[in-house]
């Protein structure tokens, strides 16, 4: 139980980077971008084939981000210059990327099990620090029997994700970032205030896909393989993370909203892991579970809100009734 939740948190914190990317397009730019299903795989493909060809894992991961950026920019160009509807532009790019990803890999799947990945390197550096032994000691004293093999991935990824979050927060407060945020709200105004909306959209979708591809590259290295189909249904996972985060946490400021998205991504992973532990569930049911989570996260807050409103109204009516009765008695 603990081990599987631990694993969920490990991948959750990496998927959080992807969710931040989806947040940028979906919420900030109001651009429902389906490119991510392709660019996530592009990230994994570029990272995996680079590593297999002897490129250092850290460089491979940066290359993955760069490839995602290009893919996103192309979607942005299709939409702004080609005047293609955002949804369709994303679908077209995603479809094209499927072939491109196969070309990058040269085969449908690349295994990294024999290769040195970012996380192997991390593990060997980490074991010297003795933090694992320390944390596992604490866990075993509180009576846990199964212990995680390494804390390196979780702790280092938390740091990396937080750094990415802080950079995103800062970016969205810069002059460029402010104009970008206004685009999702009011494109006409941004143009009338002399900002190049086309360029901003292209850049924004590019950054978003760079984040998604980074997550793809890292997930590939964590799982030990890149596969042409690993991006399937990714957009719904991203949306689920955003919606869960927004339903549970405050999104008043940008900093709070991005934190909510990250926590949403982790919670989503934990829910899926727990759901899959139910006996009659199979791995194939994961997509259905995801859909149900998203529907629940969308519907439940609304139902609760409506009930709260109803109760408030009834109370008010009761009060008024009492007052009327009180005055007629007197």
């Amino acid at each position: 139980m603990f081990i599987s939740i631990f694993g969920a948190m490990e991948s959750g914190i990496i998927y959080a980077i992807m969710a931040l990317g989806v947040y940028l397009t979906f919420r900030i730019l109001d651009f429902p971008d389906l490119t991510v299903e392709g660019s996530f795989v592009t990230g994994a493909a570029v990272a995996a084939s680079s590593i297999v060809n002897g490129i250092p894992p850290i460089t491979a991961t940066i290359l993955a981000a760069f490839a995602g950026f290009i893919a996103g920019c192309l979607t942005g160009v299709l939409h702004t210059k080609g005047k293609i509807n955002p949804l369709l532009a994303g679908i077209l790019m995603m479809t094209a990327l499927y072939s491109i990803n196969l070309r990058i890999m040269g085969q449908p799947t690349i295994s990294l099990l024999q290769e040195t990945t970012l996380f192997n390197q991390l593990g060997s550096l980490w074991s010297a620090t003795g933090i694992d032994a320390f944390l596992n000691n604490i866990l075993s004293t509180i009576g846990l029997e199964q212990l995680p093999t390494t804390w390196a991935i979780l702790l280092v990824m938390i740091v990396i994700t937080i750094i990415i979050k802080l950079l995103t927060d800062y970016f969205l407060k810069t002059e460029v970032g402010l104009a970008l945020r206004a685009i999702g709200d009011n494109k006409k105004m941004v143009r009338s205030l002399s900002a190049n909306t086309d360029l901003l959209i292209i850049f924004g979708v590019g950054i978003s896909n760079a984040l998604v591809a980074t997550a793809g590259g890292l997930i590939g290295q964590l799982g030990g393989f890149a596969d042409a189909n690993m991006g399937l249904g990714l957009i719904v996972i991203g949306l689920a993370s955003i919606i869960i985060g927004e339903a549970l946490f405050s999104t008043k400021t940008i900093a709070k909203a991005t934190l909510a998205v990250i926590l949403g991504a982790i919670i989503y992973r934990i829910i899926v892991t727990l759901a899959l532990r139910i006996d009659f569930m199979e791995t194939g049911d994961m997509k259905m579970i995801t859909a149900i989570i998203v529907i629940a996260a969308l519907v439940i807050p609304r139902v609760l809100q409506a009930r709260k409103e109803n109760r408030r109204r009834q109370q008010k009516r009761a009060q008024l009734d009492q007052q009327l009765r009180g005055s007629s008695d007197a």
Partner: peptide
């Protein structure tokens, strides 16, 4: 039409302030 509703008054003014300058990666407010 002239403002961005989900952003604050100061953020809106910051966007307008950059009208005749180059927008850079430095804080708007």
């Amino acid at each position: 039409a002239g403002t961005s509703p989900s952003m604050t008054i100061e953020e809106n003014l910051a966007i307008a302030y950059s009208r005749n300058k180059k927008r850079r990666l430095r804080l708007g407010v």
